[in-house]
Design a protein around this nucleic acid. Sequence first.
DNA 1: TTGAAAGCGCTACCAG
DNA 2: CTGGTAGCGCTTTCAA
Lengths: 332, 332
Amino acid sequence: MKRISQREIANLLGVNVSTVSRALRGLEGVSSELRQQILALAKDKGYRPNPFAVSLRYDTTRTIGVVVPDISFNHFAHIVKRIEAEARKEGYMCIITDSDDKYETEKSCLELLINMHVEGVIICPSQETTDFAHIQRLRKINVPVVLFDRDADIDISSVVINDADSARQATKTLIDGGAKRIAFLGGPNRVKQTIERKHGYIEALRESNMPIIKELVKCNYISFNSGLSDTLELLDLPEPPDAIIATHGLLVGSAMRAIDSRGLRIPDDVALIGYMSDWVSDVMSPRMSFVKQNQREMGTKAFKLLFDQLNGDNCVQHVIVKARLELRDSTK
Amino acid sequence: MKRISQREIANLLGVNVSTVSRALRGLEGVSSELRQQILALAKDKGYRPNPFAVSLRYDTTRTIGVVVPDISFNHFAHIVKRIEAEARKEGYMCIITDSDDKYETEKSCLELLINMHVEGVIICPSQETTDFAHIQRLRKINVPVVLFDRDADIDISSVVINDADSARQATKTLIDGGAKRIAFLGGPNRVKQTIERKHGYIEALRESNMPIIKELVKCNYISFNSGLSDTLELLDLPEPPDAIIATHGLLVGSAMRAIDSRGLRIPDDVALIGYMSDWVSDVMSPRMSFVKQNQREMGTKAFKLLFDQLNGDNCVQHVIVKARLELRDSTK
DNA sequence: TTGAAAGCGCTACCAG
DNA sequence: CTGGTAGCGCTTTCAA
């Protein structure tokens, strides 16, 4: 029960491959009688074109690569789901790779994708990545690239949310709720996304003439555990914060857990707001106030930017998807 | 800046392609001097083998397909992440497709994967799927298949958890906590997984000589909304349940939300236990007692089963990954 | 309307 | 140790 090729069909019918090829693709130059025979036989034998032969011929693979820091993280999973759906709609398959948020793994993912001759790459750099040469190299060999979620200062199309402004708004909410000492729980300083969000936080403080207190700013590796210990450190300060903004879902969760473990209450003792998925907020108690990111749109836009490039539009575009505040019960 | 081929290298050096091929693959029969030259030039020009030429030659693609109901669902994302990592370790790339938990989409995903000539498929059928002919057809054309998470009564290798027994244990926990009227919130009855888990639930009731109350069993489409309305219906019964077992993360979340919205308390008014991810339980209040599924192991085993088949081991295996109870604060 | 042949990049086999 | 060549499945061009 092997797959059947055009040549085999041709032999079975005693005609030439090229005739079969024409018939199968609905081109001119085959008598409708013969065409029927060929089509019938092809269907009967379950003929499928061999995409590798086609790729070899045309140097086109109808395949794109996706590199994501952690597919098991809800935020990314939603974006990837969308990218995959949009790509499939246009007849592209996605090769999804997971960099585990590590620079070296990310490089090897790209390596593999290049070897697979993907036609383009959509990537969110790892939180370790500071050198983007491996990504820029793609452009040099004419592979279109789009960055998503985490931008970088390189000349490549990207889709991100309004990081600074959303953080500014979130911080402002805490201020409006009466917070006096607001802590910032973010990712590593090398990540532009962190810098932007911290910018927004500082901007909000400035606008309200509030001091920027260094010891209330924690920028470390993004993980549940580091979020936990950072928050505990904050709570153990002589003058602990009365509000926290956390820039990642994991950090929101760990902050909440830490606050809880100290017997403090949200939002009365410590208010909390952060960047996270809505369905998680839905099951938390209290329900978290959060920055709602439109992952569907990010995914759609990311693919669109790539698709444009695949179709020859080479201008670099930076798309910003507006995030909006969703206020629930963890802020006053 | 195009990719360079072996032929081009050969021409540049004035030697034959076959020599270049041998040198590049480290085979015997090339003077080390010439080999150095070839390797150096290849490196300099950034030579990459064209996988499509290789595939065409060997009829092997080093690619496997994955079909998942919903990648944005945490449980699946974790499994997929593991499958991808294991596959990459063995030099396989994954084409991940998302069926949206729909039968028709699932069929078209498989269609595309077959067209891509993936060497094998790892699939979790959609909750709509009752006819498995499209999956069995893969075996007929010699494409190895492995089912995961949701098994079916077909002769195909699979990895699932101990569905019945874990549900039995979870129900027993509720009984031990003093529950008298335990509701079962599950997926559609056509899904074997649901049947198994319901089996375990009923078994536990029987063992404790408790009646099986029909109106306390809700088996509908798995979604947050249907879980919400089902739970509300349960709570509105003349004799509402004092405990609920929910067989999916979404259902646990929606049950919790419903209980909360009626002003009832967990676990005092209604105890709750379910199948979910640990980090979500960590941020819920109260922290959920749950059936902990080892997604890492499921992913690893799923790939291993496929890998065995890819290497010619054709016997059908059914692997059961043991889930275990993790008791926290939503049960007594 | 149909057939023959070349070529995409690579490997394998047989010559020299 | 190196070169020549056929062929994987398909498309394309040219010839019949």
